[in-house]
Design a protein around this nucleic acid. Structure first.
Lengths: 260, 260
DNA sequence: GATAATCAGATTGTCGACAAACTTACAATA
DNA sequence: TATTGTAAGTTTGTCGACAATCTGATTATC
């Protein structure tokens, strides 16, 4: 998951990482969005949320602005903040963007020094193993988490801070897509073999193949999320039946520790 | 420069665009960064800046967070805010990212309906004309502005809101690169023919060629900005001579109207 | 009975103030 | 003379409060 902070000199002390309150709040909110404590569409009042986080409204509002810039939150006028609900159009947009970026990432990883490349493969392999374990246990949550981390590893080794940040956001948005489209996590059995193939392609030094696989995977993801004709008519039906009537979700209690 | 808001129904009223104070401040700051009123490295005090903008520190701080998320500002601990200074590494990073994204954009524009494509070509042509006029007048500022708008048109017609936002930020960062590397605007005569070629490639329906040209242009830009060996040893020397000793730039007065 | 106007409640947007933290300069000591 | 310790000043980080605004419902009128 690292790879960007490789310029640490041995013997010298790395600068202390001091993080501001706003950073902490933003990180907390991001977590809450990723792990589903704040489902899409959730509307939150500033005062209540600030109280739960143990901070005042000032820093909270600053963190909100940051998450808004990342596209995770929307701020309707005079109604606090709401977790962004992804539309089918968003799903397509996000995955199209990922499909342009991630194949390039693979190509770039293959230009790394041999040692680094081995590290990447090891890290990716570890994530795939996590995915396999999760699949065996039918733990959709863990599968999703490993999925995110797999792609974060990719992003981290792309050699671009900016791109890592952007892809990081896109991945959280991907998670939001899942939450927006389904009420619960889905276990996709195809996911693991697909990612095994990614690693194999990289191991075989075949960037071209990696790109093709990645684009195919992302297109498949869009189909799965939008439950488009081909593979899942029944899924669509199930979804519609299981779906709650989408009432304006009331303040969903944040389950966060009191003392920040 | 538009293209994303094409879903406006005739006869229906478009929703009123009400913009919050934070939006206004953020936009003002972005402008100031783009037009050079706030050169890279500028350190600003919150109180002073808030006073100049005619708002209190609260909304200003919120806007700061947003610009920070965009990578335009950095917030050193307890020293207000500073306009980000781009390093050579940033220059390479930004242009590499653009080189990944913008060719794809051309390909996507070519999939547009014929009518839309004509509109794009017209808009791009207009920007090229602006660039030509600017070049004739040796107006580096105007040339740079038209350059930005040319690429913004591209971004706007890519059919992706997210990508338009990202590329928008990258373009502002590009401008910051110029300011970070040189003390003044530079007139690059090659710029205009390069962009004429872009339009021609699109007009000829040749996405492949467009991509190649774009990548070449961006690589050339990096060389120009970093004054790398090939084309500009003397430029490098000139630059070093002309350069001020990079003293911690004191509060550079914002030239903004009082009443917001 | 339906539409418009009014009113109360709640929540945001904004501001002013206080205290903690950091920087810088100066002085004291080894 | 160099280095450490001290102190003052400045600026941020955070909080609490007030007022404007919006929502939702109730009432009055046609």
């Amino acid at each position: 998951m690292s790879g960007l902070e490789g310029n640490r000199k041995v013997g010298r002390l790395a600068p202390v990482r001091r993080t501001s309150t706003v950073d902490l709040i933003a990180e907390r909110l991001r977590e809450a969005v990723v792990d589903g404590s704040l489902p899409p569409g959730t509307v939150l009042g500033e005062a209540e949320l600030a109280y739960q986080l143990g901070v005042s409204r000032g820093p909270l509002r600053e963190a909100m602005q940051r998450l808004t810039a990342e596209g995770l939150l929307v701020i309707p006028r005079r109604r606090g903040l709401a977790v962004k609900t992804m539309t089918p159009e968003d799903v397509r947009d996000i995955h199209w963007l990922r499909a342009t970026i991630e194949p390039e990432l693979g190509r770039r990883i293959l230009t790394l020094a041999a040692a680094d490349r081995r590290t990447v493969l090891a890290e990716l392999g570890a994530e795939v193993k996590r995915m396999q374990r999760a699949l065996r246990k039918d733990d959709a949550r863990a599968l999703g988490d490993a999925y995110l981390d797999f792609h974060r590893v990719l992003a981290g080794w792309g050699g671009s801070l900016r791109l890592a940040r952007m892809l990081g956001t896109l991945l959280i948005e991907t998670r939001l897509c899942t939450f927006s489209m389904f009420e619960h996590f889905e276990v996709h059995r195809d996911l693991v073999p697909e990612h095994v193939a990614f690693v194999e392609a990289l191991a075989a030094d075949d960037g071209e193949r990696f790109g093709i696989l990645m684009r195919a995977h992302l297109e498949a993801e869009v189909r799965r999320l939008l439950a488009e004709p081909e593979d899942a008519k029944e899924d669509e039906a199930d979804r519609l039946l299981a779906e709650t009537p989408d009432e304006p979700q009331p303040l969903d209690r944040l389950d966060l520790p009191e003392g920040l």
